[in-house]
């Protein structure tokens, strides 16, 4: 049994040896790392898209509103009372009363039908409450419950909200999330195959060294160790390059997305991985590297035995 210092020194030696091998073949290393980075960046990009879409639609409180049309015979005072009553509801964030007069004024301004409206003796529009649900209740089922509750009020004529739009958006995001898991699983297999094959080639190139090491008493674990570090380094470097490429792509997309958002009156900005997610990607890359190297090494090292 070796001392902890000796054990640590052996691992450090294996790590440095693996690093040295990567640095001695910079072009080959770069190409392999680039392929791993591309394999990692595709699901990461999908994740960023889903996360940003979710963040953007968290503003459903801004977008999804329930329009409550009161009965046409309700007085302004009654409408103000209902506004106060609506504010007390648990699921409600903001309530805005648009009186019949304000409604008519807006309609006159934006419809271009001012002269036609002048002919009418009475304002045909009802008082309207525009209700924004609070942040925790923007999903379809919560909105539907709120709609049913408001419709039950005797002063209310109808309640409208764009439920189809919200449901479709939610379905698309769920689909993208499932797609992310499928793509991530497939590309993780790809990374395993890339690293496993790279390690296999490295094992073939070092066949003599492995034979001699086994002949002088090197265990399979000892022989395998530098290859596991090689896989770890490939995985870590691949994930770090994926992060760097992702950051470059984000910077490149920032301006066009800002312009697109401005066209819709939004200040939405595309955001990349947060530090925790970035760390997770690096750990996943490293883990895939070790696993791929293990699979490649276990299979091929067992076949190499010393000759005399």
């Amino acid at each position: 049994m070796s001392s902890p210092i000796t054990w640590l020194a052996r691992h450090l030696q294996a790590l440095l040896s693996a690093l040295g091998r990567l640095l001695r073949a910079p072009l080959g290393t770069l190409l392999t790392v680039l392929v791993i980075a591309i394999a990692l960046i595709l699901p990461t990009g999908l994740w960023v898209i889903v996360a940003n879409a979710r963040a953007a639609t968290n503003d459903l409180t801004e977008v999804v509103t329930l329009t409550v049309f009161l009965n046409s015979d309700e007085s302004l005072q009654s409408a103000k009372n209902l506004e106060l009553k609506a504010r007390t509801l648990e699921k409600v964030g903001k309530v805005n009363l648009i009186s019949a007069d304000e409604g008519l004024k807006e309609f006159r301004e934006y419809s271009g039908l001012g002269t036609v409206l002048d002919i009418m003796k009475e304002n045909p529009l009802p008082h309207v409450l525009v209700i924004q649900p609070n942040a925790q209740n923007t999903d379809h089922s919560s909105l539907e419950l709120l709609r049913v509750a408001l419709t039950a009020w005797p002063e209310v004529d109808t309640v409208q909200f764009d439920s189809q739009w919200a449901r479709r958006l939610e379905a698309i995001l769920n689909l993208l999330q499932q797609l992310f898991f499928a793509v991530a699983a497939l590309l993780a297999l790809g990374v395993l195959a890339i690293i496993g094959n790279t390690v296999r080639l490295e094992i073939m190139a070092r066949r003599t060294e492995i034979e001699v090491t086994k002949l002088v008493g090197g265990s399979n674990a000892f022989v395998r160790r530098p290859f596991l570090y090689l896989g770890l380094l490939y995985g870590l470097m691949g994930s770090l390059l994926a992060l760097a490429l992702g950051a470059v792509i984000l910077v490149a997309l920032e301006a066009p997305i800002g312009e697109l958002g401005a066209l819709y009156g939004s200040t939405f900005r595309l955001s990349g991985l947060n530090p925790e997610e970035a760390l997770r990607l690096v750990l996943i890359g490293g883990g895939l590297g070790i696993l791929g190297a293990w699979v490649g090494a276990a299979r091929h090292l067992a076949k190499i035995e010393p000759r005399q």
Binding site: M1, I5, T6, W7, V212, T213, G218
Partner: peptide
């Protein structure tokens, strides 16, 4: 040294 390294002999 390889013979000793595989046997975990201190450096």
């Amino acid at each position: 040294a390889l013979s000793l390294i595989v046997a975990d002999v201190p450096y």
